[in-house]
């Protein structure tokens, strides 16, 4: 079976890859492009570890086909920091100890960025519901939510 050629933009860089039409975007990112920061926790859209943005919209990359990336803008955890400097959200996750094992962390950071892009001043409840699709089994979410709300505050320049 012949593979499909896909041209896409990942974290701002034009990228080409070959994939089977049935391959998920997650599989392409991890196995073809070695962007292993995007994690697989369930393969069914229930855990959020594979969260990426497609044309600015937050999605689970396990529920997107690689071929659907044609002409799209993909954002992954590898594109969150800029010029070798951590994003505020990354700094706040570290500062608040908002990770233990860290496997959910890339997905949560991508999701938090999407949240704050949409809503720069979320309430605790809004943050909790927006991030309900990002499972964390280690932290009980307390420190994650604190990191998210503190990030929002700093990013609004209200710190």
């Amino acid at each position: 079976m012949s593979k499909t050629h896909v041209t896409t933009t990942i974290n701002g860089d034009v990228t080409e890859f070959l994939c089977e039409p049935a391959d998920t975007l997650l599989s392409v990112l991890r196995n073809e492009l070695q962007l292993t920061g995007t994690k697989e926790g369930c393969g069914s859209g229930d855990c959020g570890a594979c969260s990426v943005t497609v044309n600015g919209r937050l999605v689970c990359s396990c529920l997107v086909l690689g071929v659907e990336a044609q002409g799209a803008e993909i954002g992954t955890i590898e594109g969150i920091e800029s010029a070798e400097k951590l994003h505020t959200i990354q700094e706040k996750f570290l500062e608040h100890a908002a990770l233990q094992c860290g496997i959910c962390t890339p997905g949560l950071i991508v999701s938090t960025k999407a949240l704050l892009d949409e809503n720069p001043d979320p309430t605790e409840e809004e943050a909790r519901y927006y991030l309900a699709g990002n499972l964390c089994r280690c932290t009980g979410y307390d420190k994650i939510i604190r990191a998210v709300l503190d990030s929002a505050k700093v990013m609004r320049g209200a710190a």
Binding site: R30, T36, K39, E78, L86, L94, E95, L99
Partner: peptide, 17 residues
């Protein structure tokens, strides 16, 4: 700040898969 944290918030940390 945990020393392994930087790899974990950037996606560089390598897990089982």
């Amino acid at each position: 700040i945990r020393p392994d944290g930087y790899d974990k918030v950037t996606g560089r940390a390598n897990y089982g898969a």
